[in-house]
Design a protein around this nucleic acid. Structure first.
Lengths: 221, 221
DNA sequence: AAACATTTGTCCGTATGTATA
DNA sequence: ATATACATACGGACAAATGTT
């Protein structure tokens, strides 16, 4: 495998990055609960670093909406409410839809073939009741389209929204939600639209493919 | 006027916030040029604070895409390329469009009236060749719709994209770009769609209302 | 009302990493 | 290959702000 010359391998992960990923994980998986008070000193001890990188990590998490800092008062994990999914999914659907629209006019056959392969695997996983694998494949399908759109603003915002949705699922249902057979059909429709270079149909189907899970989730809770 | 109890007036602005807003301003207005190297020590001196709040500000700016930090190497203002507008406007248009779609079904008459008032003022400003005022009113029009959508994720991402667009305009054209009479017509169409509770038309018109300036800008540069 | 306890915010010295000679 | 120069990353002490007694 050829390794690009200008690729700087992250030889050493910084303390801030460690703190950041760990705290984010803890917030998303519910180890740190919504509304919980965070002491930077304690967290620093727990993570084996000083307060500085912890504070820096907390500030980044604040920008992402996982933490609220009140100067001189306290720092807390943000609250979370059932109605939040109704705020998270629509922008996600809109941007996934945009990604499709962007990709459709110039998509190449190798790319649609890859989507087809993933969708076949997804179908199999659902039939064999491998629900975790199904969830992963569903993510792969959409991530691949987003990646093809090649727009860092879209990519960044989508992944942030997905992290919040993941937290939501962890907090309100203790287990991951499986993809259904309906997804496979919708994915096929998306691929079909891609084959015809039909941006608007692709965009529309993707939107529904994301709003349907929102409504299912909203009924469940 | 009733003052909410839990409203904490920002009595004292922190050093980090000062550093953050000032650096952001300097990057957007081109005082700090794309690709320019940033020394946290120098910036700290210039801002009259220590290096810590400067570093924290730089990290926030990095998340927003205004700064790139390379550990142990350097910290620079991000480069900017003409093709960037083609990446900035589409997600902005998609989210503005979503905001409209969200608001349309439940919009109240006072709200459409307010939009109408702004649009009349915008029309006047253009006729009187008050271009700066026209630009402000155009912003007000869209910001009001976004605010009505009442979704912090949409709001946050839109304002970030707008900051990048503002920088783009400062860097490539030295002056703000005025809104045209075409905007006024499109705004009227949006308001009309709102009156009819026609989400999809409103969404579609808004999208075009944002993609048109993108194409005009792209031709100019 | 004022002093105290608690928590966050800031400073600056030092350690560590990176590129260059 | 090693040393050196330079920039960033981190740590720990101190300052300031807030809420409370």
């Amino acid at each position: 495998m050829p390794i690009p010359k200008d690729f700087h391998s992250p030889t050493q992960i910084t303390a801030r990055e460690r703190a950041y990923s760990q705290l984010q994980r803890w917030i998303i998986d519910g180890t740190l609960k919504p509304g919980e008070k965070l002491h930077d000193g304690e967290l620093a001890d727990a993570l084996g670093v000083s307060r500085t990188p912890v504070r820096e990590a907390l500030q980044l998490l604040e920008v992402q909406g996982f933490v609220e800092m009140h100067r001189g008062r306290d720092t807390r994990v943000t609250a979370i409410d059932k109605s939040d999914i109704l705020k998270l999914y629509p922008p996600l659907a809109a941007l996934q839809s945009l990604a499709c629209e962007t990709v459709a006019p110039t998509i190449r056959i190798e790319q649609t073939d890859q989507l087809r392969r993933i969708n076949v695997e997804l179908s199999n996983a659902i039939n064999y009741r491998e629900f975790f694998r199904a969830m992963e494949l569903d993510e792969q399908f959409h991530d691949l389209i987003v990646e093809m759109a090649d727009n860092p603003y879209i990519t960044g915002f989508i992944s942030m929204l997905q992290l919040h949705i993941r937290r939501f699922k962890y907090v309100f249902l203790q287990q991951p939600v499986s993809s259904s057979e309906a997804s496979v059909v919708e994915h096929a429709a998306i691929i079909d639209a891609f084959d015809r270079r039909d941006s608007s149909t692709a965009a529309e189907v993707v939107k529904q493919n994301w709003l349907r899970p929102m409504n299912e989730l909203f009924k469940m809770i």
